[in-house]
């Protein structure tokens, strides 16, 4: 009894032991975010940086622009279209990785237990290489004089190279390639837990293949689909390297646009406001997505 009590009192103060880690975590995680949020409501410095004067200009410039000569206010279509493009490309990336990731994960999960580790290992190999290098490798494949176009021309299928590089298609190919493992791994984990006998039960009860997929398999592996989608969508939305290298200067995504404000644009408050907005968009869409997708199937 006595020993038990001693143990409990030790347990009650046990969290103190992790206090240094907690402090570090709190400062490292929320400190920079706090700075960004604060910068978004300060006045723009002359060349860069901020002046410590409260100002709504950063946030104002997210949606509107002011003519430099007559000061008339107009809607900032360009900003909005960059935002919208990013969301569209990220959703498309998520869908593409799902379309390729599901059969891949299924394939791995249905291999004999011995060889699964090998296939999973193959999936994780790209993580070992620098993102920039992988992106340049993609570039080497799809550029006009690249492997793909050369092969197609040599095969006589096309006479002129297809312009893929510096288009949305290039950005999509790059992002889908980079984020595919993030979709495959959670899907694999879900399928691995899936009881394959349920498929037979479905067939036995008159379901077609498609009905078994939609009515049995997909609903049961849904947690994996949700996890994979989140893991792909969020980094896609903030992607910087891939759209920069494969999309060229014109096809910007939010990440590039934000970088522009801190660099050439010399408008830190606008960059900070855009960053904060991106964070909010991600948080809200996460909330909505998990709400909607966990509003469960029983009672259709």
């Amino acid at each position: 009894m006595k020993g038990n009590g001693a143990q409990r009192s030790k347990g009650a103060n046990g969290w103190l032991l992790s206090a240094p880690a907690l402090v570090l975590l709190v400062f490292a995680a929320s400190g920079p975010l706090l700075i960004v949020a604060v910068y978004s409501v300060l006045e723009k410095g002359d060349y860069s940086g901020v002046r410590w004067i409260l100002s709504g200009d950063g946030w104002f410039r997210v949606l509107f622009e002011r003519d430099i000569f007559d000061q008339t206010v107009s809607f900032a279509d360009a900003n909005l279209s960059i935002f919208w493009r990013s969301v569209k490309l990220s959703i498309a990336t998520t869908l593409i990785t799902f379309a390729f990731g599901l059969p891949t994960a299924w394939f791995i999960a249905t291999r004999p237990a011995k060889s699964r580790a090998f296939w999973l290992f193959l999936i994780t190999i790209p993580f070992w290489t620098n993102l920039l290098i992988r992106t340049f490798a993609i570039m080497e494949v799809i550029r006009n004089e690249g492997i793909l176009n050369t092969a197609l021309i040599n095969a006589g299928l096309i006479s002129e190279p297809i312009q893929i590089l510096y288009t949305d298609t290039a950005v999509l190919i790059g992002m889908a390639y980079v984020y595919l493992p993030l979709m495959v791994l959670p899907l694999y984990a879900a399928i691995d837990r899936f009881d394959f006998r349920l498929i037979e039960a479905g067939y036995d009860l008159y379901a077609s293949r498609l009905q078994v997929l939609r009515g049995v398999i997909l609903p049961i592996i849904k947690p994996g689909i949700i996890a994979g989608s989140i893991l792909v969508f969020i980094p896609s939305l903030g992607a910087y390297v891939t759209p920069r290298v494969l999309g060229g200067g014109k096809n910007m995504m939010i990440g590039n646009f934000i970088e522009l404000q801190f660099g050439q644009g010399q408008n830190w408050p606008l960059g900070a406001a855009l960053s904060t907005l991106l964070l909010l968009v991600v948080l809200v869409s996460l909330l909505v997505y998990t709400r909607v997708s966990s509003r469960d199937t029983p009672h259709e």
Partner: peptide, 29 residues
Amino acid sequence: PPNQRPVNTVFQSYALFPHLSVAQNVGFG
């Protein structure tokens, strides 16, 4: 194929659909 045979099976492992209610399981076929 099994989905076209008027034959149903009670599986040893039951193989009930975990995401469906009892009524939905029973109504599945």
